[in-house]
Write a protein that binds this DNA or RNA. Sequence first.
DNA 1: TAATGTTTAAAACAGTCGTTTCCAGTGGGA
DNA 2: TCCCACTGGAAACGACTGTTTTAAACATTA
Lengths: 222, 222
Amino acid sequence: MAQTDTVTRILDTAEVLFAERGFAETSLRTITSKARVNLAAVNYHFGSKKALIQAVFSRYLDPFTVRFHHALDELEAQHAGRVIPLEVLLETMARTVLEVPAEKHSLKVFMKLLGLAYSQAQGHLRRHIQEEYGSVFTRFTDLVRRATPELPDAERFWRLHFVLGTVIFTLSGLDALRDIAEKDYHEHVSVRDLVRRLRPVVVAAMNAPLPPPPAAQPAKAS
Amino acid sequence: MAQTDTVTRILDTAEVLFAERGFAETSLRTITSKARVNLAAVNYHFGSKKALIQAVFSRYLDPFTVRFHHALDELEAQHAGRVIPLEVLLETMARTVLEVPAEKHSLKVFMKLLGLAYSQAQGHLRRHIQEEYGSVFTRFTDLVRRATPELPDAERFWRLHFVLGTVIFTLSGLDALRDIAEKDYHEHVSVRDLVRRLRPVVVAAMNAPLPPPPAAQPAKAS
DNA sequence: TAATGTTTAAAACAGTCGTTTCCAGTGGGA
DNA sequence: TCCCACTGGAAACGACTGTTTTAAACATTA
C-alpha cells in the first residue's frame, strides 16, 4: 500500500478536526469520512473515541517528554550542580515545544489541542495527561524553584500558571489574533515572531516585584 | 408567583452547567430538569439553544458594559484630558469585572464562561460578543494607547492579549489550581488574593523591555 | 496453502439530541 | 366575561451520536 497507514490517517484527520471544533463537536463519522477510512476502523484500532482523543495527545506528548527530559539532562550536565538561570530554563522549554511539532505536525494544532485540554473539562483527558506526563512538569518546576529562590513557593506556583495561561491562550487562539493583527498593523506574524515577543514579557512577569501582603482587614480607605 | 421567574431559573441553571461541562455537553433536558421547568420552556422563551447561550452571556456583559463605560467616563472627567496612567486603567477594569457578578452571580462562573467563549469555537458566540460588546473594548484600548506611547502599536496589541490570556486562563481554571495550591502550600486563595498577585505581574508584563527586532534573514547559523 | 492481521462495506443497535406539537391548566388585565 | 401570556406534562419528530456486528476482501507471513 503506497498510501499512508490507516491509523496515521485517522490521527492526522482527527487532530485537525478536534482543534477546529472541539471533541464533542467532532463525530467519528466526520473523521472517518474525511480521512477516507471505514467508520469501524476507529473502534477497531483505538477501541473508543476517548482512546482516540488520548492517542492524538500522546503522539505529541510522548516525543515532547523524551526530548524535554533529554534537554534537561544536557542542561544539568552543563551546569554541573550550579543553578540554571531562569531564562535558560524557559528558553529550553520553548525550544523543545517548537521542535516537536515541526517534524511533521502543526504547532498551531498542538497548541489549540492544549487549550482544549484545559478548557473542555473532559475529565478523562486531564487525568490521563496528569498521570502520564506529570513527572516532566514536576522536574521542570523543581529546576525553576532553584532558579528563583527569592520567590515564595506559592507565588512561583501562581506565576508559572500565569505565564502558562499567556502562552496557551495566545498560541491556541493564534489564527483569530493573527488576522486582526495583520489587518490592523499590516504586519505578518509567524509563530517564531510571537515567541520573540513573548520572551521579554514572560521574563518580566516572573521577575515582577512581590505583591503587597494581604491586608488582614481589607479597609475601604485607600 | 412566589417562586422565581422561569426565565431566571433557566438562566441560573444553564450558566452553572455550561461553566461546568461546556455548551455541547450540556443538553436542554439536563438544564430544564435541574431547573424544574418544562423542556419546552427554553424554546418558548429563548427560541433556540444558541439564543439561550447568548442570553447567558448578555446577562453578565450588558451590566458590565454599562458600568465600564460609566467608570471610564468618570476617569476621563477626573483626568480632564490628561493621560490616564496604565495602572489606573487596569485597576478600573479589574474593579468593574469584580463588581458585576458580585451582585448576584458567581465570578468563577463568569470567568469560566469567558474562557469557554474563547476556546469552544462556537462561531456564533464569538461573533455575537464581538458585534455586541466590541466598542467598549475599543474605547479601553484607545485609552491604553495614550497611556503607553512608547509601545509600538503592534507590541501593545499583543501584550494586551498576553495579559488577557493570563487572566482568563487563571480565573477560568481557578478551581483546579486552587485545589493544588491549597494542598501543596496550605494556603487559602480567594479571587481577590489572586487579583492582588496578578496586579504586579500584569504591570510588569506590559512594561517589559521591547524584544529585539527580528533578524532580517533568519539564517540557519546561530 | 493456510492462517493472520487489516481494511472495507453496509447495516443495525440503542441512545441522546434540539425542536415541535397538542393539550390542560394558571393568572391577571381588558 | 373573554382573552392572552405563561407554565406544565407528555409525546413524538427527525437527525445524529458512539458502538457493534456480519460480511467480504486484501495483504503479508508462516
